[in-house]
Amino acid sequence: MFLINCPYCGERDQQEFKAGGEAHIERPKQPTELSDDEWAEYLFMRKNIKGVQFERWNHAHGCRKWFNMVRDTSNDEIKAIYKMGEKPPAQ
């Protein structure tokens, strides 16, 4: 449980948000040409990092907008928050 600074609404309780998993997983540009291994990689395989991880979050009980977050999963400390489409900060 922690506070999240929504880039559109400001600081709110984490309870208002929905975690959307790992960020920057690109949808395949040519889905028809993907092998089964590549599909598995895209759909299921995750870094699941213990440490600094890039994630997507949704302000589900607020503005309902998606944004990105850089968070340390070993202590839940939020390092950075940036909007969709923005470049991730260098880590």
Partner: peptide, 14 residues
Amino acid sequence: TDDYVSYTQKGSHQ
């Protein structure tokens, strides 16, 4: 479970 990845062994109050 909480819906976010975490290794903190804590979890949320709600």
